[in-house]
Nucleic acid binder design. Structure first.
Length: 767
DNA sequence: AGCGATTGTCATCCA
DNA sequence: ACTGGATGACAATCG
């Protein structure tokens, strides 16, 4: 029961710490589904650092004195976590964004001609041009998010401190004191204390109490000093998406089925006007080819590459014929070449309504499918294949995205359709709307969850500029691991140093009474190293602390003669001379004068127990009493004829001494655990920010793909001709993907019906 | 004088 | 049963 309670309270406590540090709402798991076990370990694992069972188990199984098992736990945890994250990073799915510069370079000249040029490629251009309109919106939104983020960050700082205050508020033990020792003995002790205090009371001025605090502050500063939002470009997984994340984000954005086989469902892409009520099913069919239920990263990437290659091949095919006719754009222009269609190709000229609606059924025409490659350019096929874009443009950054351009592409309206209405159905308007909404919600989410505003804004900037630089912060995997390494190293350094020191002590404990045995947790050595490294050797108090807490071999202390006179009260560890004096007869036998002064000074350095020991004429040092192994300790006791009072005092001294060291270790461990938790929170925040960035990036890329699909749709539709060679009116006809992969030209009324039917399906599926 | 931090100590649990 | 580590709680001390 107690252990359970302990476990729960500790778990809750740490969970509370996490909650308060992260902010109000913690749904990191949503983004870290694959890392759930580590997260759980973060929440519950460190609690094991406080549990005794593991310690003892490890202590029993491992070399008991050598290592601090708790720190080992943390080390293992961090190491495993780091390695796991590295392994996961292997299957990152790269979303290339480096080609956007070319896109932007060509944007202006083409945008200027968008109104009169008949090219559908120009539709994209104008859309990209319009993207600038949407840009500021994003900026505003992000600035708002920044506001929210900064607030969140402030909250973090404000929430954290009280946590530690609650650490000891629970489980107050009100049990009656156990009377282990004879009351008379205790009374004697107190009397002795009183006597001793009468002599030396009020004189104890122990310098250096704040030394450790100083060192700790240094440590803490060094850790908290790392600026969370610092951006260090270079992480390669900056633009990388793991497959799982990809799929998850996709699903969150577009409700297509997991295994939606394009075009499994007959979907209508025939919205005459880009309406908000676009059937969700449309997305499925339009985008599913890109993401058809592939489970493995390889499949997804493979499909992606297939798509790219298909598109490029088709572009080459079509462009070679009549791209010049359609566009004035230079041949080398990637946009014009990529999106140009040949209006005079047989497929365009000879298409009849009948052929379009019926012939297409027999044609296995699968958009985005490898079969497209074999699609005959000329023939009875009803439709042109969707014109490809090259991989670069397809993956170009969303800096070129634009919604308005999708809704009403002016190029097709003005040029391709002589008789058609000025509008062409935009099958993707709803999609893009959804994407936008998603992004908005994303931003809201970011605000809500403390997404780093600086990172967000930088992310946006870098995306817009498409610098191709990694957007990851300084805590990108490398730094993350390094930070983890540092975190673990801090704990492990303390633990390893403790383990090394304690292991060495254990090996030689029998021969050296001054070894500290199982005390181990000598972070002080860390502090000492730090100060030595900085050349700022602390004031003596630090060394006194060092000496006191680590119970170094007096021989080592003798190397630092000035330490002799440095000490802190309440110490069991004394400078060699003090130790010697303890063994010597009372100071009264010493010579008067300076030596007496020195003796007084040393008296002041002695702890209460040491004073007691001297008053009780204990014939050996407190160090021996405390640090000697049990056998040797008993041996030592047997060598002397000691009274009951003396024996009791000795046992008390030993008990208090060991407990004091244990308390020090406990506090250090507690501090380390808190610091590690703090680091974990920072790491989690970093991960969350990274995932959010990846989501934004993916949304943009998705938006681009939608744009392209829509423009292709418009191009194809605009080039359809009936028996009389007239274009079809978008208000009367629409293209529809059939289940067998073919594309049909059907009356819009029919398409609307099917669209409505499709609209219901996903809703039902969602439920 | 009050306050927070540090440290020592006790009681208790546990292995 | 004894020993000792761990830890919550409390008190003393200090800056």
């Amino acid at each position: 029961m107690l252990s359970l309670k302990k476990y729960l309270t500790e778990g809750l406590l740490q969970f509370t710490i996490l909650l308060s540090l992260i902010g109000v709402r913690v749904d990191v798991d949503t983004y870290l589904t694959s890392q759930l076990p580590p997260l759980r370990e973060i929440i519950l694992g460190p609690s094991s650092a406080y549990t005794q069972t593991q310690f003892h188990n490890l202590r029993n199984t491992l070399d008991g004195y050598g290592i601090h098992p708790k720190s080992i736990d943390l080390d293992n945890y961090f190491t495993a976590r780091r390695l796991l994250s590295q392994v996961r990073a292997l299957d990152r799915f790269q979303v290339p964004t480096t080609e956007v510069n070319a896109w932007l370079v060509h944007r202006d000249p083409e945008g200027s001609v968008s109104g009169s040029q008949p090219s559908s490629g120009l539709a994209l251009e104008s859309s990209s041009g319009l993207q600038d309109v949407t840009g500021p919106d994003n900026g505003v939104r992000e600035s708002e998010t920044e506001q929210g983020f900064s607030e969140d960050l402030e909250d973090l700082g404000a929430v954290a401190p009280p946590v530690s205050g609650d650490l000891t508020k629970e489980d107050i033990d009100l049990g009656a004191g156990r009377e282990i020792f004879d009351y008379s003995h205790r009374q004697k002790e107190q009397d002795v204390d009183k006597e001793l205090r009468d002599g030396a009371e009020q004189e104890d001025a122990w310098p250096g109490e704040g030394a450790e605090a100083l060192a700790r502050n240094l440590l803490v500063d060094g850790e908290t000093g790392e600026s969370f939002p610092a951006q260090v470009p270079g992480g390669e997984d900056q633009t990388a998406l793991s497959l799982e994340e990809c799929l998850r984000l996709l699903e969150a954005t577009c409700p297509f089925g997991e295994n939606a086989e394009f075009p499994a469902d007959i979907s209508s892409i025939t919205e005459a006007v880009p309406s908000e009520s676009e059937p969700p099913g449309l997305q499925n069919n339009l985008l599913s080819p890109l993401l058809t239920g592939t489970e493995s990263p390889f499949d997804l990437e493979q499909q992606w590459q297939d798509l790219m290659s298909i598109m490029e091949m088709q572009a080459m095919e079509v462009n070679t014929s009549t791209s010049e006719i359609l566009y004035d754009a230079p041949p080398g222009d990637p946009l014009s070449t990529n999106y140009s269609l040949a209006p005079n190709t047989p497929i365009n000229q000879n298409v009849s309504l009948h052929q379009a609606s019926l012939g297409g059924c027999s044609q296995d025409f699968s958009l985005f499918s490898p079969e497209v490659e074999s699609l005959p350019v000329a023939g009875s096929s009803t439709l042109l294949p969707l014109v490809p874009s090259n991989s670069t443009s397809l993956n170009s950054t969303f800096g070129s995205t634009n919604l308005a351009g999708l809704f009403f592409p002016p190029q097709l309206n003005g040029t391709a359709n002589d008789t058609a209405g000025p509008e062409l159905p935009d099958p993707l308007g709803g999609l893009l709307d959804e994407a936008m909404l998603d992004e908005i919600s994303l931003m809201d989410l970011a605000i809500e969850e403390g997404f780093n505003p600086v990172q967000a804004s930088q992310l946006e900037e870098e995306f817009d500029s498409d610098s191709g630089l990694s957007l990851d912060s300084s805590h990108s995997p490398s730094s993350l691991s390094s930070s983890e390494g540092s975190s673990s190293s801090s704990s492990s350094s303390s633990s390893s140093s403790s383990s090394s020191s304690s292991s060495s002590t254990s090996s030689s404990a029998s021969s050296s009474f001054s070894e500290e045995g199982a005390v181990g947790y000598s972070s002080d050595s860390e502090t000492l190293d730090l100060e030595e490294a900085e050349g700022a050797v602390g004031y003596q108090p630090e060394y006194s602390k060092f000496c006191r807490m680590s119970y170094q071999d007096p021989a080592q202390l003798s190397c630092l003669p000035y330490l002799e006179h440095v000490g802190h009260n309440h110490t069991y560890n004394m400078a060699p001379s003090a130790l010697d004096s303890a063994d010597l007869p009372p100071p009264s036998t010493l010579k008067k004068g300076s030596k007496e002064k020195q003796a007084d000074f040393l008296d002041k350095q002695m702890s209460r127990d040491e004073h007691r020991a001297r008053a009780m004429k204990i014939p050996f040092t407190n160090d021996k009493i405390i640090n000697l192994p049990v056998e040797e300790f008993n041996e030592l006791l047997s060598k002397y004829q000691l009274s009951e009072a003396q024996l009791s005092l000795i046992r008390d001294i030993r008990r208090r001494g060991k407990n004091k060291m244990a308390a020090q270790n406990c506090r250090k461990r507690k501090l380390d655990t808190i610091l590690n938790l703090e680091r974990d929170v920072e790491d989690l925040q970093r991960d969350k920010a990274r995932l959010l960035r990846e989501k934004v990036e993916f949304l943009r890329s998705l938006r681009q793909m939608k744009q392209k699909v829509q423009s292709l749709y418009q191009e194809v539709f605009g080039r359809l001709r009936d028996e009389n060679g007239r274009p079809y009116s978008p208000s009367q006809y629409a293209l529809q993907y059939a289940g067998d992969g073919s594309v049909l030209l059907i009356p819009r009324t029919l398409a609307d019906q099917q669209a409505r039917r499709q609209e219901r399906k996903p809703k039902d599926r969602r439920k």
